[in-house]
């Protein structure tokens, strides 16, 4: 008898609950834009915030409302962009993925130290107090503030120098904001020639502080042409709008090894044979 009652009661409860679910589903239905869902399923879903919106779903909503551009997502690959553009019924321009690069080559091995820094291991704190232990006032502090904010762990600290692995980097730009010395730049993936120095000092002074500075000798400028390498005071910079050919470091013969492909000289020396150079 007891068993019968309990089965009966459970059946009644199930019926009431089932009915209420059915009614709620019918009357409280929220109209979802199928387009938003489709876009959201295409987006990377890393919620990195690189687009400037509050995560991927917010970006998808803005896209379908026409408030954002497909190019806004720094992470999505060219194919994904095309697919999203198809959903929106738009066309996308040719897209080149951007990656971050740390424009400093002064690892502990190559940059002189002038003091023993004994404070907080954080770049911003070190920069505010006295600028860490390295002599160069422009160089990488190496306390990994950028690596800590990277959502995909693409930044490695190697012998006191931050190095970006461009194959992992999604180009969200968080590290750019985290660096107190503004050493990190977002550059097109196709350009792999970088000048790994950001010091604005004179060449002679730089050479006293670091073994791998850009001394502004312009050897690379002569080989590549003034369009492709820009001279900025005592510093040469790659023109990232019209980059030089990837084999420039081989041809230019940089006297300080500060011109390099993808990775700074100091990093290559440490991890000999472990990394492949992107020389076309």
């Amino acid at each position: 008898m007891i068993i019968l009652y309990s089965i009966l009661i459970l059946c009644v409860v199930a019926l009431i609950l089932g009915l209420s679910i059915g009614i709620t589903a019918k009357y409280f239905l929220v109209e979802q834009d199928p387009q938003v869902e489709k876009i959201l399923s295409l987006l990377p879903g890393a919620n990195c915030g690189g687009c400037g919106f509050a995560g991927c779903s917010d970006f998808a909503k803005s896209l379908s409302e026409g408030k954002a551009e497909v190019e806004g997502c720094p992470v999505a690959s060219a194919e994904v962009r095309k697919l999203i553009a198809q959903v929106l019924g738009k066309s996308v321009s040719d897209y080149i993925r951007k990656v971050a690069v740390v424009l400093c080559g002064g690892s502990n091995n190559f940059a002189r130290k002038i003091s023993e820094y004994n404070g907080i291991a954080d770049c911003r704190s070190a920069n505010i107090i006295a600028g860490g232990g390295k002599a160069c006032r422009y160089g990488c502090l190496g306390f990994a503030s950028c690596a800590r904010v990277c959502p995909v762990n693409a930044i490695e600290i190697c012998d006191g120098l931050a190095v970006v692995h461009s194959d992992i980097c999604i180009g969200c730009g968080k590290c750019v904001k985290a660096c107190p010395r503004n050493l990190i730049k977002l550059v097109p993936e196709t350009i792999t020639v970088h000048v790994f120095c950001s010091s604005k000092d004179k060449g002679v002074d730089k050479k006293k502080l670091c073994d791998v500075p850009c001394i502004g000798c312009r050897k690379c400028v002569k080989v590549a042409g003034e369009d492709e390498m820009l001279v900025d005071g005592f510093l040469v910079r790659t023109n990232y709008e019209k980059g030089p050919a990837a084999d420039l470091p081989l041809r230019a013969g940089c006297p300080t090894n500060c011109l390099g492909n993808s990775f700074p000289y100091s990093y290559k020396k440490l991890s000999k044979g472990l990394i492949e150079e992107k020389v076309a």
């Binding site: 004994n118 404070g119 907080i120 954080d122 911003r124 704190s125 505010i128 107090i129």
Partner: peptide
Amino acid sequence: PLVQHFKR
């Protein structure tokens, strides 16, 4: 290094 924290 408390003071350094506060300075920052």
